[in-house]
Design a protein around this nucleic acid. Structure first.
Length: 228
DNA sequence: GCGACAG
DNA sequence: ATCTTGTCGC
């Protein structure tokens, strides 16, 4: 069995872990990495925050593309059943994210998720997991690496460097702002690396995080304070 | 065997 | 993710 274990959270139940790993292996067969065929008009960003130990609050922000103007903001909060386990993040956050997604009146052509897509030990980062559940193009933008090796991209905005894992390029390390730590961009589902990278850059205005993700992150904190 | 480890 | 003060730099 191969799962990550660090000293600051409880050891996961081996049986549960085996079941979830098997589910990821089955889902892996259905992942489609290809040039997206959409005409990108609406893009969504999503993120989750936590209220205490067992309540998760997820938000979806819908923006026009390429103008990046906000047209919808929805959120949903509920209980969390699993602890955070590297490699199994989706099982902890996706259920509530999907409920928030249902509240959108209009649906996006693409969803930008906070976290990895196929740049995952079994290619099943949360972006890919959500894409498979929604049968919708998704891409991941993560702030930290999960697996793979890379060289630091040049310091100027737009510079990229490949993230390699088992001899395959699974993501691009993208500098979205001069002299600021880069983000990790990967395709989730019904998406490819090149398109994901160019869209992430097109959504990078004056901040490190691309607008959909940055705004989702921002509103997750806003709605959280309203609930508390 | 020792580290590494999305949010 | 979350807990948290001051501090460096544009």
């Amino acid at each position: 069995m191969s799962y990550f274990r660090r000293f600051d959270y409880p050891a996961p139940d081996p049986a549960t872990l085996a079941r979830l790993t098997e589910e990821q292996r089955r889902m892996q067969e259905r992942i489609v990495i290809q040039k997206p065929d959409f005409d990108l008009k609406l893009i969504a960003g999503c993120d989750s925050s936590f209220i205490g130990e067992d309540t998760i609050l997820s938000v979806f922000i819908l923006l026009t593309y390429p103008e990046l103007e906000v047209v919808e903001k929805v959120w949903h909060h509920g209980p969390v059943e699993l602890p955070y386990i590297p490699g199994f993040l989706a099982f902890r956050e996706a259920p509530n994210l999907l409920k928030a997604y249902e509240k959108l009146e209009q649906k996006p052509d693409l969803i930008m998720v906070d976290g990895h897509g196929i740049s995952h030990p079994r290619r099943l980062g949360i972006a890919t997991h959500l894409g498979l559940h929604l049968n919708k193009p998704t891409m991941g933008v993560a702030k930290k690496v999960l697996v793979g090796k890379y060289k630091e991209p040049a310091a100027t905005k737009g510079s990229i460097s490949p993230l390699v894992y088992k001899d395959e390029i699974i993501a691009n390390v993208l500098r979205t702002k001069d002299n600021i730590k880069p983000v990790f961009v990967s395709p989730g589902h019904l998406m490819d690396l090149e398109s994901a990278t160019s869209i992430a850059l097109a959504c990078a205005t004056k901040y490190k995080l691309p607008e959909p993700t940055r705004l989702a992150d921002h509103y997750a904190a806003v709605f959280k304070s309203e609930v508390k």
